[in-house]
């Protein structure tokens, strides 16, 4: 191989590398990180990216060079030189990729180990997934349950995930971490939020027709607000007490329904601020809609999305409280 061609092919390689690097930096590939885990993932990501850009540039350079230089002349029926192989080269392009992937594997393994380790005493929150709603149980002597995930900033949190029916998957893009909630298997996830703000839990495992709507609000707040949140909840009483408000959030209603008194703004299900009882007593209609959502399916919405398990999972007292709470919340008429 002549020097001239070596120079040329290197130039192509560099150009390809630059092009690829531009794509890599100009496009916002990753969401803005909001957790220590995501920071480490980003590191692994960029480490791999650099190596892969290198590999890609080599391949691209070889292709471009061949296309430009080895195109056959018209009417040339002759064959190329009968080169059958070159042991040296073959060893090189076996060894180098091996080294590179080993590097990636080592970095990844380290990141994984650090991301799995929650430190001495993390905040333990139990996550329960069910078609198609999330429920979060907070630690503490008073059992606090909510349809919203509220986390204190800069504190490692260990989530333990459970599922009541099929497989779901817990993911907050900005936190990076993701894990399935598998019936019969307890899975865990470590998150250390670093930025205050509002985020969203997205269910990423196909779990039925409500899959695309299975979201839950996440709030990262400072320690004080977090404790206040817990206190309020606890004060408002755990769901077994007859407070419609707490049941509404605890049972996950707030995850799907906008309802002013509860301050929820979810849009999976219809707004509940002024339900049209279709000419029947409101309370009766509401009760039916909760106990057996498919009895009447609100136009513009799908059946089977709202869990039909509430008749079982909620006690009669809780249902009464919940219905009363909704009735009181009705605007107009």
């Amino acid at each position: 191989m002549r020097r001239g061609s070596i120079v040329r092919i290197t130039i192509y390689g560099v150009l390809a590398g630059i092009a690829a690097s531009l794509v890599a930096v100009l496009v916002p590939w990753l969401p803005t990180s909001a957790s220590e885990e995501m920071d480490r993932i980003e590191f692994a990501f960029w480490f791999t990216t650099v190596i892969c850009i290198g590999v890609f540039s080599v391949v691209a350079a070889a292709i471009i060079y061949s296309i430009l230089n080895f195109r056959v002349q018209p009417e040339d029926e002759s064959d190329g030189p009968p080169i059958h192989g070159h042991t040296g080269l073959e060893i090189v392009w076996t060894a180098i990729p091996a080294v590179l992937v080993t590097a990636i594997a080592i970095v990844s393994a380290i990141v994984l180990a650090r991301n799995d380790d929650a430190g001495p005493n993390p905040i333990r929150i139990a996550v329960t997934a069910q078609q198609f709603a999330w429920k979060f149980e907070y630690p503490g002597d008073k059992k606090v349950v909510s349809g919203e995930l509220v986390l204190p900033v800069d504190k490692p949190v260990k989530l333990t995930l459970h599922s009541l029916d099929v497989i779901h998957s817990f993911w907050v893009p900005e936190f990076g971490q993701k894990s399935d909630a598998v019936p019969g298997v307890e899975t865990t996830l470590v998150i250390t939020p670093t930025k205050k703000g509002k985020y969203r839990v997205i269910c990423t495992e196909l779990c039925g027709l409500g899959h695309s709507t299975m979201r839950a609000p996440v709030r990262v707040v400072d320690q004080a607000t977090y404790e206040k949140f817990l206190a309020d909840k606890a004060g408002a009483g755990a769901p077994d007490e007859t407070s419609g408000k707490s049941i509404f959030t605890a049972a996950g209603c707030s995850g799907c329904h906008a309802f002013a008194p509860a301050g929820s703004d979810a849009e999976v299900g219809p707004k509940l601020d002024n339900v049209d009882p279709r000419g029947r007593p409101v309370d009766e209609f509401l009760r039916e809609s909760i106990e057996n959502p498919n009895a009447f399916v609100e136009p513009g919405f799908q059946p089977d999305v709202m869990p039909s398990t509430y008749a079982k999972t909620l006690t009669g007292k809780q249902l009464d409280a919940l219905v009363q709470y909704l009735v009181d919340g009705q605007k107009g008429s």
């Binding site: 990753l30 995501m38 480490r40 993932i41 692994a44 990501f45 791999t48 892969c52 590999v55 890609f56 992937v101 990636i104 594997a105 970095v107 990844s108 393994a109 990141v111 994984l112 991301n115 998957s169 993911w171 893009p173 990076g176 971490q177 993701k178 894990s179 990423t204 495992e205």
Partner: peptide, 17 residues
């Protein structure tokens, strides 16, 4: 190459599904 990203467990945890 995107497969290599996915093979890296921490990246796959972010990218899976």
């Amino acid at each position: 190459l995107s497969g290599i990203f996915l093979a890296s467990v921490p990246i796959d945890i972010a990218a899976s599904d």
